[in-house]
Design a protein around this nucleic acid. Structure first.
Length: 154
DNA sequence: GCCAACGTTGGC
DNA sequence: GCCAACGTTGGC
């Protein structure tokens, strides 16, 4: 299958792209996602080699800050049955996992962030889900065209 | 901190 | 299975 492109949101106060850079092998498990649509993307659609736009949300300057790559495909999110975890969900268990995650590895931190404002102002990027009203999904598919255009802008 | 948009829950 | 109430997201 052809390479696919995604946008993944993270709150930098919780997990920023700098956190990712300091992680072992610049790789992290994308856990804590508790939304079914986003889970389905990780469980069913995302493949090793897929490219990811890393997006900072709920911060001073929201926008795309870099690129990562999927290095491990969907597997159960064990924070769901860790009672000490913020993401604990009693309805999930090792026998019957409800939530999934993927591993992503940092590829590049953009020298300059492509801000949400810039994306909104750019007529070429109006199809991106992230600028569309009420789009809260934390993982979104992105077209190849938009992905490459964002990279070029950065 | 506000609030619009949207997802989830739970009573019926 | 409907839908009101509630919780969360996330830009501003």
């Amino acid at each position: 299958m052809a390479i696919q492109y995604w946008l993944m949101k993270s709150e930098p106060e919780t997990f920023s792209i700098e956190h990712l850079e300091r992680s072992p092998k610049k790789t992290t498990g994308w856990d804590g996602v508790r939304n079914y649509q986003a889970r389905n993307f990780m469980r069913d659609a995302m493949k090793v080699g897929d490219q990811v736009l890393f997006y900072h949300s709920s911060c001073k300057v929201p926008g795309v800050v870099g690129i990562a790559e999927v290095v491990k495909e969907g597997y159960p999110d064990d924070t769901a049955w860790d009672k000490k975890s913020d993401y604990y969900d009693p309805k999930s268990s090792p026998e019957n996992p409800r939530w999934y995650r993927v591993d992503i590895q940092l590829k590049e931190i953009f020298p300059e962030i492509v801000t949400l404002t810039e994306i909104k102002e750019d007529p070429k990027l109006q199809e991106m889900k992230v600028v569309q009203k009420g789009q809260r999904l934390s993982i979104q598919p992105v077209t190849r065209k938009d992905f490459e255009y964002i990279c070029k802008r950065a």
